[in-house]
Design a protein around this nucleic acid. Structure first.
Lengths: 344, 344
DNA sequence: ATGAAAGCGCTAACAC
DNA sequence: GTGTTAGCGCTTTCAT
C-alpha cells in the first residue's frame, strides 16, 4: 500500500516551494514567469513518480469540483438513460464529470440527493424534478448554484428549463387518430400532477372535446410495478370494450400496456390503434411497429448541457447574458427575464 | 447567497468547543461522556439552523468518502442499468453513495475514470472491466482499495468476482436446440476477447462439436451502431440460408438482430428459432416471445454489493475472513486463497 | 466532560 | 520568479 504523494513531497524532492509546483500544475507558470526549464523539470518529475493532485483538497480550497449532479427519474428508463449518456459525453468533453442518480419521483429521496450533491460541492445541477421539491431548488438557486430543469417544469421556480411541447404532442396525436376515423380514444397515463403529465392530459382532453368525443382516461400511480400496470390496463381495456385507439402517456406504461394488449389477444391495429409517448426499442420491434411520440433526445441533451455550461462560465465571471440562444430550437418562452426555457 | 455554516460557527454560537460538537455529530457523545443535556441542546440548535457537515472536509481528513465507484459497460443497456439500480438502492441502505459511469468498453476511457474515482477517494470499486485494464486494477488492489469485478473476469487479477456460468449457459442452450431437432445453429456474438464472450463461444462450440454439427459464427465489433449490426446480421442470414436456429451473444445484438430478422420477413420460430443472451423488454414482448438466457440480476447485484461491503468493513478493521459466504449461490470457485468468486 | 491545536492536501495573497 | 503562510471544514490526540 504505497503512500500517496502530495504536492509537498514533490516540492521537497525538487527543492522548490509548493507555490511553484501549484502554479505549474494549474497552468499559471507563464503568467507567473516561472522559468521554462523549471517547468519542464517539474512536469517530468511529476510524470515520473505519477503524482496526481488530490481533487478533494482542491475542491475544499476552491469550492469548485468540476462536477455536475444529474438527477433523473429512473436511470433504468431508456429515455433518461440515453439522455444521461449524451449529457455525460458532452460534459466530459468540457472537463466536467457527471454524477447521476435516480429520484424515483420520490420527493424525500430527491431532497437527500440534492443535499448529497451540495455537500460534494457539485458546480451545477441538472434535474428532472419530482413534485414538491420547489423550495429545495429555490434554495439552490438562491445559493447561487446553476440549475437546469428538464422534462417537467416546476411552478414558482425561476430556473432554466428544457423540454418539449407536451400539450401539442398529445393534441396532435389525438387529432391524427381522429382524422383516421378513430372515435373512442383512451389515454393511459400517470397519476401525477407533474407539469409534463398535466400538459399531455390537457392536450388529449382539448383535442377530444374539440371533436365532441368522449374521454376515456386511466391514471396509474408511478409506484406501480410492471405487473400491477398490466393488471390495471387489462381491467381498463376489458371494461372499455368500445375503445378503438389508445394513447400511452409514457414509454414504460406503453411497454406494460402492450403486454396487457397481447395477453388479451387484442390485435393492433385492426382492433386497437396504439400510440406511445417516448420511444423504446419495444415499439420499433413490435409487429406492426407502434407509433411513438419521440422526443428529440439529442437536442434536449445538448441544450441542457450547453445551458448549464454557460451558467457555469458566467457564474464565475461577469453577468453578461447576451447571445444566449442556440440554433436548433423550436420555441423559447420564459416567464422570467433572466432565465431561458427551450421548448422543442 | 447565504453563507454555509461550519462546525466552528456552531461551536461559537453555543459557546462550546468544536471538539464537543464533532463528537456529538459523530455519535461519540456517550463514549466521551458528554452530558445528555448538552447533546440535546447541540442537536436542537443544529436542526434549527439546518447545519450539515461538509463531507468534503470530512473525507479529506478521514480518507473515507462513503462512496463507491460503479463502472458498467453502458448505462443505457437494460442489463447494466438494472444492476446499477439494484446496487445503488442496496448501497444507499448501507450508507454508501454510488457514482456510476459507462466505460464503453474503452480501455483508455476506463483508465481515466478509474483515475477520477481514485482522485475522489471512493472507498471501493465495482467494475465490469474492458480488456487491457488489468494493470490499473492491480494497482488499485495493491493500494488497498477493495475491488469487485462482475460480468467478466480479468486474467491475472486477484479480485473478487461475481458472474454467471457463461459456458454452461450457451452449452445448454445449444443442447436444448439440438434436442428439439435443430441442426444448423448460428451464433451471433461480439468480436471480443472478454472472458464472458469467450466462454459463451466455447459453450456453443463444444455443444456443437459434441453433436457433430457445423459452426456458424458471426462476430460483430462492439463499436458497431445498431444500424451496422442490422446490416451485418442481414448479410449473414442471407448467406447462411441453411440456418434453422440462431443464438445471440448479448441482448443488444439480439435487439438489432430481431430487426434484421423481421425486415427479412423471416418467421420465428417456423423459419428460425431464436435465443438471446440477457433479457430485454423486447424479447418478452415479441410475438411469439423470444427465449432468453436470463441472468439473475437481483442475486448478482446483491452478491456484488455484499461482497464489497464486507471488504469495506474489513479493510478498516481486523482481517478475519471467516463466514464470508452467503446463501443463494451456485458455485464458488476462486483461484486465489483470499478472494471470492461467485458464479451463478 | 471539554477544549486547544495539529494537520489532511491544496490554493493564492503577500512577501521578497 | 519563488517562497511563506493562512486558511478551506473537519477529526482526533492530548491536556486539563
Amino acid at each position: 500500500m504505497k503512500k500517496k504523494l502530495s504536492i509537498n513531497d514533490i516540492a521537497r524532492s525538487l527543492n522548490i516551494s509548493v507555490t511553484t509546483v501549484s502554479f505549474i500544475l494549474n497552468g499559471r507558470a507563464a503568467e507567473k514567469r516561472i522559468s521554462e526549464e523549471l517547468v519542464e523539470r517539474v512536469q517530468k518529475y511529476i510524470a515520473e513518480v505519477g503524482y496526481k493532485p488530490n481533487s478533494l483538497a482542491r475542491s475544499l480550497r476552491t469550492g469548485k469540483s468540476n462536477t455536475i449532479g444529474l438527477m433523473v427519474e429512473n436511470i433504468a428508463n431508456p429515455f433518461f438513460a440515453n439522455i444521461a449518456r449524451l449529457i455525460e459525453d458532452n460534459a466530459y468533453k468540457n472537463g466536467y464529470k457527471i454524477l447521476y442518480c435516480s429520484t424515483d419521483n420520490d420527493t424525500e429521496k430527491t431532497r437527500e440527493l440534492i443535499h448529497m450533491f451540495r455537500e460534494r460541492h457539485v458546480d451545477g445541477y441538472i434535474i428532472a424534478p419530482p413534485e414538491g421539491i420547489e423550495d429545495d431548488i429555490n434554495n439552490l438557486l438562491q445559493a447561487g448554484s446553476p440549475v437546469v430543469l428538464f422534462d417537467r417544469k416546476l411552478s414558482g421556480v425561476e430556473a432554466d428549463f428544457v423540454g418539449i411541447d407536451n400539450y401539442g404532442s398529445t393534441y396532435n396525436a389525438v387529432r391524427h387518430l381522429v382524422a383516421k376515423g378513430y372515435k373512442n380514444i383512451g389515454f393511459i397515463t400517470l397519476y401525477s400532477l407533474q407539469s409534463q403529465m398535466q400538459e399531455r392530459l390537457q392536450g388529449y382532453e382539448t383535442a377530444l372535446s374539440e371533436n365532441q368525443l368522449n374521454q376515456h382516461v386511466k391514471e396509474i400511480p408511478y409506484t406501480n410495478s410492471p405487473e400491477e400496470i398490466i393488471k390495471h390496463v387489462t381491467a381498463f381495456l376489458k371494461r372499455k370494450k368500445e375503445l378503438d385507439a389508445v394513447l400511452f402517456g409514457t414509454n414504460y406504461l406503453g411497454v406494460s400496456g402492450l403486454r396487457a394488449i397481447y395477453e388479451l389477444g387484442i390485435n393492433i391495429p385492426s382492433d386497437l390503434a396504439v400510440i406511445a409517448f417516448d420511444d423504446h426499442d419495444v415499439f420499433q420491434l413490435s409487429n406492426p411497429s407502434i407509433t411513438a411520440i419521440t422526443q428529440p433526445i439529442k437536442e434536449i441533451s445538448e441544450e441542457v448541457i450547453s445551458l448549464l455550461l454557460k451558467r457555469l462560465k458566467v457564474s464565475g465571471r461577469e453577468k453578461n447574458h447576451s447571445r444566449w440562444f442556440s440554433r436548433h430550437l423550436f420555441i423559447i418562452v420564459s416567464p422570467f427575464p433572466n432565465r431561458h426555457w427551450f421548448i422543442f
